[in-house]
Amino acid sequence: MAGSPSAPLTRRIVGLALLFVASGTTHLVRPQVFEPIVPHALPARRELVYVSGVAELVCAAGLLVPGTRSVAGWGSAALLVGVFPANVQMTVAAAKRWRRHPDDPKRAAFLAGTVARLPLQWPLVRVALSATGRDV
């Protein structure tokens, strides 16, 4: 990976970086929002939320700098795959809340949003991989 050519800075890569900045900042400022979606088998939820927030900010910065874009692309893809279980956990928890109150349109809408979000993670991984400068 060292010495890999830098991919051009596209709008999609900038968009992913901005998404990481927003999410990473929220992880650090309001970690309690993310703690419930850390898979239950993992210890130290608050610490994991902080670590993932910092990782998102580091990836964002790396994506924007030509000399680190390739490595940041690989790191961003790994991060997105690594946090996918938390997205699944969010959907499972939303489904449980909705089943307790199936007539609540807000809970139904939130559940629908979490379900719709799951397949959207993969296009984000593709954008991250596009930053590597390699055909992947």
Rank of each mutant, 00 (worst) to 15 (best):
M1D: 15
S4Y: 09
T10W: 09
A17R: 00
L19K: 01
L19Y: 12
F20R: 00
F20G: 10
V21W: 01
V21F: 02
V21R: 10
V21A: 02
S23Q: 08
G24V: 12
G24F: 00
T26W: 02
P31V: 12
F34N: 01
E35F: 00
A41I: 15
L42C: 06
P43R: 01
P43T: 14
A44M: 15
L48Y: 13
S52L: 08
S52F: 10
G53W: 10
G53S: 12
L57F: 09
V58N: 04
V58S: 06
V58L: 15
C59W: 07
A60W: 04
G67P: 11
R69W: 14
R69D: 08
V71F: 14
G73A: 05
S76G: 13
L79I: 11
L80W: 02
V81D: 00
V81N: 04
G82L: 02
P85W: 08
A86Q: 05
N87P: 12
V88W: 07
Q89E: 15
A95L: 03
K96Q: 11
W98I: 03
R99G: 10
D103N: 13
K106H: 15
F110S: 06
G113F: 07
A116T: 13
R117T: 05
R117N: 10
L118R: 13
L118I: 14
L120F: 12
Q121F: 03
W122L: 15
P123I: 03
V125A: 08
V125L: 04
R126H: 11
V127S: 04
V127D: 01
A128S: 01
S130R: 05
T132L: 04
G133E: 06
G133W: 00
D135F: 04
V136M: 03
